[in-house]
Write a protein that binds this DNA or RNA. Structure first.
Lengths: 313, 313
DNA sequence: CCACTTGTCTGACGATAGTCAGATAATATA
DNA sequence: TATATTATCTGACTATCGTCAGACAAGTGG
């Protein structure tokens, strides 16, 4: 890869770590241990379950209990057992906890102001626009793909988003029951697979492959959340599905799509899909595409580990 | 200030802290305590004095001694008394210390590669270019001004840079002895002041004010290092000198300059200086400028604390 | 109902980070 | 030469962070 790009990224890391990190430290966690501040922040205005906090901050359960008790003793939080599940405990900020959080918020603003302070108006614009770009591209690089269970709540959420979008974009809406189905069982190995893209643990996109006939597969339910479009995530999901197909000895990948989905059509054409005659009777489709897969070696880089299940102690 | 800009900066901070900070941690300081790694890194290939390391990393002297001894016990560094000064001790990496450092270096590369990995070529270009811009502007916001002693080594270094630049840019060179002097004593309160701009502790620019007659001051030795030009540092130095003049009840600020110093002339004009007849016989000058100062309240924001002396325990 | 899982809590640790007061030796300064 | 100052080292602490093994209660699935 480009050595200059690597140098730029490293230099950026140093500068930013210094500017954000150091100043962040000095400004944000003033009298309080860092993890206490982080917790106050993450509990938020609405309260949060301990297990969620543990996951988000990557803390040991025993450790969390103690820090939480310390916060409770200071009168900043109240911990109580959740209604629905007697094992789960959830934390809420008290009045003075909310005050502390507001103070953190104010400090965070102050830090930002401090950075913008000495710049001219034009420089500020340049800085914020460049920051926005960096952020967007860094987020693109933080998206991870994994094969997941299509019955999970996150998978179902993705499908709902997908259907909702089709419904709003297709002329005359979209009714899943009239469309050629991809049953849940069909999206589980060995009959198929569902790939979910996640950013910070949250699902942000999906795509599925269904092995139909011998050596033929169909791509289904390609959806990327609007905020992340144009960053190549869709392309990565597709590559991954093709890799899975290739591993399953598939030689031909097919898909059908609706004419209103311009960006998807562009993605397919760009990836080497060519338009063919209708190969099924999907009522919502206007275009049918297919692509011949080369040997498995065309996909040397295995992007994901199979069935990644995230869990923390 | 622009609330949207503040939000963008904060959001940037979060994302980058997560991406760089978290991953940095996981990648870089693998088996070793963070401060040991930081020290190995900062000692560098050539070795470094302990007092410098203490300053750079902001460590307590006792603490540093112990961490250093731990590194020595691991066979990674050798500490010995400096030749020139029997009080000073300096640390050098051993062979295996150098290996550890190379490993850190490699990890740092790996992190950068990991970020660039999933991006397309065009995205990489966008990212590195945006990163460069952010870095440059962040650095601009990290520059601090302080009134300093004009006899310090850093002040002298600035003057040398300044003279060297004049010498290379003026047609026929520049000889300080032929120019109207600004004696060192003249740049110390109450007769005048020297402002030095620093980035990460290193001097990156200077500017001086000399109170000549009652209510009149002259600006002298305005210099900004080439890498930081165009970022408004010169303007800040000038504002600061004007503020000092204003505080000293000066009503008129004057300066002379050479026609080859285009960017300086632009700076002066932009700041409200107007060209006047020659008010002295400076042989190297082609333009003379002056600016009437408004009341002191025109400079409500005091940028610096007087005589900031950086020292750490 | 019984075994298993999940989420939390407790106790007992060890490692790292950070601070402070004072001792010591080498230099700088008056 | 007497008196600071500088740079380091030592000892004695405290706080925070992080980990591990096990207890316990609430829910889950057979």
């Amino acid at each position: 890869m480009d050595a200059e790009a690597v140098l730029q990224v490293r230099s950026f890391n140093r500068t930013v770590a210094e500017r954000i990190g150091a100043v962040n430290d000095r400004f944000l966690h003033q009298p309080r241990p860092m993890n206490e501040s982080r917790l106050i922040w993450e509990i938020g205005l609405e309260g949060e379950e301990l297990r969620t906090l543990r996951m988000r901050l990557g803390l040991d359960s025993g450790y969390l209990t103690r820090v939480m008790r310390s916060l409770a003793k200071q009168g900043l939080v109240r911990v109580r057992t959740a209604r629905q599940d007697g094992r789960v405990r959830s934390a809420h900020l008290t009045k003075s906890g909310l005050r502390v959080r507001a103070e953190l918020d104010r400090r965070s603003d102050e830090l930002a102001l401090h950075i913008l302070d000495v710049l001219t108006g034009k420089q500020r614009e340049q800085l914020t626009s460049a920051m926005g770009q960096v952020e967007r591209l860094l987020e693109a690089s933080m998206v991870h793909l994994a094969i997941e269970d299509p019955t999970s709540t996150d998978a179902i959420w993705c499908f709902e988003q997908y259907f909702a979008e089709l419904n709003s974009r297709f002329e005359g809406g979209f009714d899943p029951t009239r469309s050629i189905s991809a049953e849940t069982q069909e999206l589980v190995p060995p009959r198929g697979a569902l790939v979910i893209a996640r950013l910070r643990g949250q699902p942000v996109g999906c795509g599925a492959v269904k092995f139909t006939k011998k050596r033929v597969a169909e791509l289904k339910r390609m959806w990327i959340c609007p905020a992340l479009r144009g960053l190549g995530v869709g392309r990565r999901v597709m590559n991954e599905l093709e890799r899975l197909a290739s591993e399953a000895n598939v030689h031909l990948v097919r898909l059908e799509t609706n004419r209103t989905l311009k960006e998807a059509i562009r993605l397919y054409r760009g990836a080497g899909y060519v338009e063919v005659e209708a190969f099924n009777a999907e009522p919502y489709a206007h275009h049918w595409f297919e692509k011949r897969l080369a040997r498995a070696s065309r996909f040397p880089k295995k992007e994901l580990t199979r069935l990644v299940i995230q869990s923390r102690k």
